[in-house]
Design a protein around this nucleic acid. Structure first.
Lengths: 155, 155
DNA sequence: GTAAACTCTATCGAACAAGTCAAGAATATG
DNA sequence: CATATTCTTGACTTGTTCGATAGAGTTTAC
């Protein structure tokens, strides 16, 4: 049920771009993201490139180059990012809406596990579609202004 | 966000044992599970063995041998099975209750992504802890009695 | 005692994940 | 125009996991 490191990096990078998003053409360098987020630069290059082909970000080359979101952060959901980087959100592909594949069980239409997995899928998709990069940026701003919460050290 | 095939097989096998569960010592042969569920027999052996060390099932050797649940199906949740076979249910380990690990982000306590992942974790855990093998067996019985639903062919 | 079943350990190939590298193309700036 | 800076592209490495197979051993019903 885990997100890959790749997917996690993608979300972190997109959050940076979202927080930096402005209507003009300002871009953020890979290196800057890499340094502030502790993400290996070469690896991040790949990820941003994927997201470029996916139409999530756009890039500008050369000295003052870098990356920026292609659309307004409130138009980009976490679901979209993860689907591009990781594939289906569904825990098993026989309940995936976008990447459906038949499974090996004897009768899919009467499979109780499948019914439960459908519920699970729905709740995962619900969270991921409901959250946009704009939400993320806003929450991030809110968290930055709060003092450190000692509770967070006690997980 | 996917379940491994191993985890899926584990759930399917446990569902069989749950449907067959009786208070006496009756067991189900590996081969029978393997055949009805289309699971490679040798592979299933490994999985059942894991679940035996985990205390979920018990085995009986010899001619009339096989496997059975060690506890009543209503005492075994899907969460328990998956945790033993796959590890953490949490999408990232920095929000896992049972397998917490620090992540590489600059400030975990103020990480907006982490906050969202926590919500996601909670909804996943909620579904998986709420569902027991007894629930699964019951739903399975209910589904078997229904006629085929044409809607299921239109996913 | 023997055949049927599980037990345990080892191994395998393929795929995938995470990360690295190098050579190339575009561009702002002096 | 030269150059340093930055993205681009694609290949490559290294380690791990996944799914599966194999074989020798153990237990038990009959």
């Amino acid at each position: 049920m885990k997100l890959s490191v790749r997917g996690e990096y993608a979300l972190r990078a997109m959050q940076v771009l979202a927080s930096d998003y402005q209507e003009d053409d300002s871009v953020v360098r890979i290196q800057e993201i890499s340094e502030t987020q502790n993400i290996p630069k070469r690896f991040l290059e790949q990820i941003l490139n994927d997201l470029k082909s996916a139409g999530v970000v756009q890039s500008k080359r050369g000295v003052a180059g870098g990356y920026r979101l292609k659309r307004n952060p409130n138009q980009i959901t976490l679901a979209e990012i993860i689907r591009h980087i990781e594939g289906p959100l569904a825990p098993v592909s026989c309940v995936s809406e976008k990447y459906y594949e038949k499974c090996s069980c004897p009768d899919e239409s009467r499979c109780a596990i499948r019914a439960v997995m459908k519920e699970l899928r729905d709740s995962i998709v619900h969270v991921m579609e409901a959250t946009t990069l704009a939400d993320l940026a806003e929450r991030s701003r809110a968290l930055e202004q709060q003092p450190l919460n000692p509770h967070d050290f006690m997980i």
